[in-house]
């Protein structure tokens, strides 16, 4: 069984990523963000929502660094993060351009688009280098 969400729901999301734009569903009826994309807005059940540009800035809600070689082409250490975006939505990503011991809950992060396995992905990096 294909576990992916209906492609028509998410193809625009990935197309925007390829073009260097981080977007997320915003409901035109109630104004709420949601992610992952759903057919109906989970807040008001409206089908009238559209992908709206995110500023791509947020904070680390949580993180884990994976040290075990995954055997599937992922580098280790691999820093997985749950980002709370400033617009009030959330997504999983990977933190790059930093070391595992720099990662702390609550740090400011920003999106950075990079190629991985021949596709563009919305990675995140720490927002200032003062740390």
């Amino acid at each position: 069984m294909n576990q992916n969400i209906d492609e028509s729901l998410t193809s625009k999301y990935w197309e925007n990523i390829e073009n260097g734009r981080l977007t997320r569903p915003v409901c035109n009826s109630c104004g709420k963000n949601f992610f992952s994309p759903q057919v109906l807005c989970p807040n008001c059940f409206s089908v009238d929502w559209s992908y709206s540009e995110s500023i791509g800035i947020g904070k680390i809600y949580s993180h884990t660094t994976v040290y075990r070689p995954m055997g599937t082409g992922f580098p280790t250490p691999l820093i997985l993060v749950d980002i709370e975006l400033d617009e009030g939505w959330r997504m999983y990503s990977r933190l790059i351009n930093c070391k595992p011991d720099q990662v702390v809950i609550g740090l400011d992060v920003e999106v950075i688009f990079e190629k991985f396995k021949e596709r563009t992905l919305p990675f995140f990096q720490l927002r200032n280098e003062k740390i």
């Binding site: 294909n2 576990q3 969400i5 990935w14 949580s62 994976v66 599937t72 997985l80 999983y92 992905l121």
Partner: peptide
């Protein structure tokens, strides 16, 4: 094999670790 999970390298133990 979810499109918002698979690209990052998540697996069960990592979700629990979060």
């Amino acid at each position: 094999n979810n499109e918002f999970i698979q690209p990052w390298g998540f697996f069960t133990a990592a979700h629990f670790a979060m």
